[in-house]
Design a protein around this nucleic acid. Structure first.
Length: 579
RNA sequence: UGGGGUAUAGCCAAGUCGGUAAGGCACCAGACUUUGACUCUGGCAUCCGUUGGUUCGAGUCCAGCUACCCCAGCCA
């Protein structure tokens, strides 16, 4: 048996290990509270929970909460439960309990054998209700919803007491039991806490604890026709699971007095502590469940897992890694001020992760043909190409080279501006892993002026890795051999929402006006080098000089590979061009 | 005119007993470069919403003011 001193020590060690692993000292106000609680022996352990309602798909805001709850537990040698807050059957579905588990697992979190449902506690919750009635702290109220609203008062005016407030305990007990029995229709009566109708905090004006709802519950079926409210079920579920720190978002701050009232009234001894933090806001996207649903239902996107969506499933399909997501959640921090994190930080996190992991490959998205006039017809060379300069252990691959190749349209300009390092008439560039070539002639369609092909010569002395490969040129281009390239589709994603700096009008409904009409660009005439086509859905690459791409998990096939752009590479040329 | 919160750089965010403003992203400059990437180096708050006060000393303590967010579901 450990004494509390040892337990504390273990916690501290775990915390230090966690911090060391992360390479930084984790410091946020929640950890400070926990440090204090451990030192003062308010608790001798840490137990958190992630409590989603299964009424939709998880998004990156939930990821913040998941990382926080599981992370805080891990850093303090504690535990974190996954609990479905399924107290409103009219909104909840098994489809969501499944997708939520998939998403939490994908993020790398392990709830072990601690998967719970608030609905598991319905019987206990009912018993607590009976206790409250017996203590004279709850009563059955017959006011209609409309009447109750009127009795509640307003933000500035106190409410008034319900005429049913002083019913006898026996009558309340009888009525509550008959509510459960299904004797009354929906909305006919409710169970209410008896607190204070004049409280300046509206949540304390005799809040509803139970409502009648003849609805089929995804787990309890038709066993119940009364369902507990969040404010009632949550603190008690926390207590039942021996949660120490119940972390939720800011809008529940006003509910904490009720949370505490319930636990104190029921004399639950080491009371779990509710702590509120600011939810995540991200630029260039929307996070509200309602708006996300509109995007899906009104066809602005292809579904909840559309790669442009901020849902976990969307980000996963886009090609984000769990590691990058966790890193992001670490970096944004946890505090109580409403804030909006720039999308650039998320992009940085995925770039940093993939820079180390993703094999390099060459792909031409908007091809233009280059003919090497002095390269023997029919000859094919197999060039050696490193897979990742950041990580030599990733080895190398073979890339076929021949007389006709494709390069990127934007890598050639007939009349280049200053500082243009790429191909233009008379200029030399290196073809990555291959030779230096020189542009000799531009073939155009005589009627339209469109460039049909570029004729170049190559310098056989400059083969990469060869004795004379040291020659320096300004530019290096990626390319794909015309006869060997695999045709592919590439989907370029951009922000869903455009931020207009000038207009400060950010009223609730106007997000649709900021929808980016170009959030998806499909390129169907792309060529990737052969090695990129022999892959599994979900595998990720860096397309040299372009960005990070992921084989689409739904639409890609052997015959026609489909790649999603996860994020582009940083592009300082784009900045120079603009200036 | 009620209650609960929050204000530190363009964006996040540390700042524990009051001792002279961490870190990251973004941005700028340079080095390196067979990816205009990566990496590296340097720069980027005389100042902490504001006005006063206490103090040898205030982002931290006190008082006032201002701005923004949340709350009147039988949603969570």
């Amino acid at each position: 048996m450990k004494n509390s001193g040892e337990a504390l020590n273990t916690n501290k060690e775990a915390q230090e290990e966690g911090a060391a692993e992360a390479g930084r000292v984790s410091s946020n106000f929640i950890q400070n509270i926990i440090n204090h609680d451990l030192e003062e022996h308010v608790y001798d352990r840490v137990h958190t929970r992630f409590p989603p309602e299964p009424n939709g798909y998880l998004h990156i805001g939930h990821a913040k909460s998941i990382c926080l709850n599981f992370g805080i537990a891990a850093e303090n040698g504690g535990l974190c439960n996954l609990r479905f807050d399924d107290t409103n059957p009219s909104k909840e579905e098994v489809e969501f309990v499944e997708s939520i588990q998939e998403d939490v697992r994908w993020l790398g979190m392990d709830w072990e054998n601690r998967l719970f449902y608030a609905s598991d506690y319905f019987e206990q919750l009912y018993a607590f209700g009976v206790q409250l009635i017996k203590k004279g702290k709850a009563y059955v109220c017959d006011l209609s919803a409309q009447e109750m609203r009127e009795y509640r008062g307003t933000l500035t005016e106190p409410g008034k007491e319900s005429p049913y407030r002083n019913r006898a305990v026996e009558e309340n007990l009888d009525l509550f039991q008959r509510m459960r029995q299904g004797e009354f229709p929906d909305g006919f009566r409710v169970l209410r806490a008896k607190i204070d109708m004049t409280s300046p905090n509206i949540n304390m004006r005799d809040p509803v604890l139970y409502r009648i709802m003849h609805a089929h519950h995804h787990r309890t079926g038709d066993a119940w026709c009364i369902y507990p409210m969040y404010d009632y079920a949550h603190p008690l579920s926390d207590a039942i699971e021996n949660i120490t720190h119940s972390i939720c978002t800011l809008e529940f701050e006003d509910h904490r007095p009720l949370y505490d009232w319930l636990l104190d009234t029921l004399e639950i001894k080491p009371r779990p502590k509710q702590i509120e933090f600011a939810r995540l806001n991200l630029t260039n996207t929307i996070m509200s469940k309602r708006y996300l649903r509109e995007l899906v239902e009104q066809g602005y996107v292809d579904g909840w897992d559309d790669p442009r969506m901020p849902t976990i499933s969307g980000l996963r399909r886009r090609g984000f890694t769990p590691e990058a997501m966790r890193d992001f959640c670490d970096r944004i921090g946890v505090a109580k001020s409403n804030s909006t994190v720039e999308a650039a930080l998320l992009e940085h996190c995925i770039r940093e992760d993939l820079n180390a992991k993703a094999p390099r490959v060459m792909a031409v998205l908007r091809p233009i043909k280059v003919i090497l006039t002095n390269y023997p017809e029919g000859q094919v060379e197999t060039l050696e190409a490193e897979n990742n300069p950041e990580n030599p252990e990733m080895g190398s691959r073979k890339v076929p080279f021949s007389r006709e190749i494709y390069i990127e349209q934007e890598d050639f300009m007939e009349n280049p501006p200053k500082k243009y390092f790429r191909l233009s008439p008379g200029q030399e560039v290196r073809l990555k892993h291959a030779y230096i070539i020189k542009c000799e002639e531009v073939i155009k369609d005589p009627s339209t002026g469109e460039i049909l092909e570029i004729r170049c010569t190559y310098d056989p002395e400059t083969k990469s890795g060869g004795a004379n490969s040291g020659k320096k040129v300004k530019g290096t281009l990626h390319w794909v051999s015309a006869n060997h390239g695999i045709a592919a589709e590439v989907r370029l994603y951009d922000y869903l929402i455009l931020e207009n700096e000038q207009e400060e009008a950010e009223e609730a409904g106007d997000w649709k006006e900021r929808l980016n009409p170009n959030s998806l660009e499909k390129l169907t005439n792309c060529y990737v080098e052969p090695s990129a086509a022999e892959t599994q859905p979900g595998s990720r690459f860096q397309f040299l000089r372009q960005g990070y791409f992921c084989v689409d998990s739904k639409d890609s096939s052997k015959e026609k590979p489909v790649f999603n752009r996860i994020v582009g590479l940083k592009d300082s040329w784009a900045k120079i061009k603009k200036a």
